[in-house]
Design a protein around this nucleic acid. Structure first.
Lengths: 144, 144
DNA sequence: TGCTATTTTGATATTGATTTACAATATCAT
DNA sequence: ATGATATTGTAAATCAATATCAAAATAGCA
């Protein structure tokens, strides 16, 4: 399920930045790619630990930085302060709809909203770059 | 400029929760109300320090919690991790448009977007509660 | 191969923001 | 005034994230 393309993106990034390969980086990259979820640094750390107990916390953070820098992932900061790392490859832009009871969340996009957001930014004389939208509510399961 | 109503809200909250008055709480409340800006805890702390050097950091945080609990303010967490406290009284719901160069920001509302957000939440079977939207771009002044 | 410059790593310490613990003090209904 | 309860400041504790640094790994080159 891991796409060769994602690995190439990482490889190319190392190359262009004159960075080196390492087993740790590989291990973290593969584990990150295998888990197509929004993991926290800590969750990733624990999974990596399972296979590679010697790996340090700092290396997780360092590699997550690389993954973000090369465009494979991005850091999401939620309201409660937790940071989660989200896959970017083959995932077009989206926002999040989050259940306030159970924390479950869904990726959502609405082209109309997207268009209006850009319009709103321009109306205030800004040059649009990006946005962040989180919708909160109670999900079907928690509603009853 | 400080509205009696805001003070009453705070008073009432203390009353209903069986909390007590204190000079510190008053001082912090008044200074918070006087500065109709999005201050950080630290900025508020420094201002309060000017009049009340004995006041502790913890008391600032504790009082900000009260201000949020009684509905006079809310904590905003921005992407860079900083928390700012925003006035709620007489400020209807709004989102933020933030300049990525200078950090300046504008409060914005777009009824069309608001409506679509609610629709989108319902479409996914959620019961809508609230949302958070931050728009990022480069402001007029920074553009040139 | 071996050499060497450079990068990476893990352990540990450090930061910075926020929270907590606790003994001393202040508040307020009686 | 008294006593029960809440509040305060100080200092210590958290917590996630970052920086430091000596030792180990990597990769280009002989």
């Amino acid at each position: 399920m891991i796409s060769e393309k994602e690995i190439n993106i990482f490889e190319d990034y190392l190359l262009t930045k004159n960075l080196k390969h390492s087993e740790q980086r590989n291990e973290i990259l593969y584990i990150f790619l295998k888990h197509d979820k929004h993991l926290t640094a800590n969750e990733l750390y624990r999974i990596v630990q399972g296979k590679y107990p010697a790996i340090g916390y700092a290396t997780i953070y360092r590699t997550l930085k690389l993954l973000c820098a090369c465009g494979l992932c991005r850091e999401l900061k939620f309201e409660d302060g937790t940071s989660r790392y989200e896959h970017l490859f083959n995932h077009q832009h989206h926002d999040h709809l989050i259940c306030t009871k159970c924390g479950r969340f869904v990726e959502v996009v609405d082209p109309q909203i997207e268009a209006l957001q850009e319009k709103l930014i321009k109306k205030h004389g800004f040059h649009p770059e990006r946005h962040r939208m989180e919708l909160y509510g109670v999900c079907k399961r928690c509603k009853r």
